[in-house]
Simulated assay, not measured.
Amino acid sequence: MEQKSRQRPPRADAQRTVQAILEAAERVLGSDPAATMEQIAQAAGVARTTVHRRFTSREALVEALTAWATRQFHEAVTSAHPDSTPPLVALYQVTANVLRVKTGWGFAMSRAVPEDPDVARVHADVLDRCDRLFRRAREAGVLRPDTDLAWARRVYYALIHEAAQNRPDGTDDVDERATLVVDTLLRGVGGRGDALLG
């Protein structure tokens, strides 16, 4: 009887080792993009040979890190169930989830290139989900009926980017920053127009 060769999934301890290396790589490379594999190994608490067994080169490690962050970004959006959760709730949850990924995996997210087929596929799916969420938000009255959804989405992306990069008011609280992003998107920063015309 011919035995089929099957690729076994990595053992739990091997997965934990890879996860520790990726997390260490994000921390180390985020502080020093020129850091060596040895520095990453030290930060991960493993031998340099362990890192080389898992990743054949520094470039391979960075590619794996970018792929991991891309999957986390996709999970951040899908886990908020933007197609079924009430639009306003989903908007807050997606925002908080994405900010966690962008602040926790900033180096890796900055390395994601749109030309990469996996990255492109994830971003296309996220874009589609965001468009559907914004349409649902407009239908539910969360956004004005005359809202230009493409413009609103671009503004939303820019607000998330700023909140991830600059941490308004110096806060490290992701939920507070998510609230600020959504409130700014929905309410703006200006006063009442009639008061200005006054």
Rank of each mutant, 00 (worst) to 15 (best):
A44V: 04
G188I: 08
L99F: 03
V182D: 01
W105H: 15
E176Y: 05
P10D: 13
A152I: 02
R71I: 00
Q42E: 13
L185A: 06
D118Q: 13
D183R: 14
I160K: 02
E75S: 07
A120M: 02
R177C: 08
A34Y: 03
T103S: 10
S110F: 04
R136G: 01
R100W: 03
R167W: 12
V98F: 04
D175N: 10
L29C: 13
G170S: 03
F73Y: 14
M1V: 10
E23P: 00
R153Y: 07
D128C: 05
S5V: 15
A69T: 11
G106V: 05
D183E: 15
R132Y: 00
A96F: 01
H52R: 14
A60K: 10
A80K: 03
Q42L: 13
P82W: 08
E162Y: 08
R71S: 14
A90S: 06
T147Y: 00
A12K: 14
L133M: 07
A60Y: 03
S31Y: 10
S31D: 15
T36D: 02
S31V: 12
A140M: 03
E162R: 07
R54I: 06
W151V: 14
E23D: 15
Q165S: 13
R6D: 10
V174F: 02
R111C: 11
R154F: 09
S110K: 11
E162S: 08
Y157F: 06
A120L: 02
H81Y: 10
F134Q: 01
T179P: 00
E26K: 08
L197M: 14
E23F: 10
A195E: 13
L143E: 02
H81N: 12
D173V: 11
V28F: 07
A41S: 11
T179E: 14
G188P: 06
V113Y: 00
R11E: 15
N97T: 10
A12V: 12
R192G: 08
G141R: 09
R53Y: 14
A140L: 03
W151S: 09
E38F: 09
F55D: 01
P117Q: 05
L61R: 07
P33C: 11
A69Y: 06
F73C: 07
P82M: 10
A80T: 05
P9L: 08
H161D: 15
D172T: 09
G45I: 05
E63A: 15
V28G: 04
I40D: 01
A47Q: 13
G190C: 10
V89W: 07
R187M: 07
H123P: 00
A41H: 05
T95K: 04
S110C: 01
D13G: 00
T171S: 15
E162C: 00
G193V: 11
A164L: 01
D146F: 07
S57V: 06
V101M: 05
V155K: 04
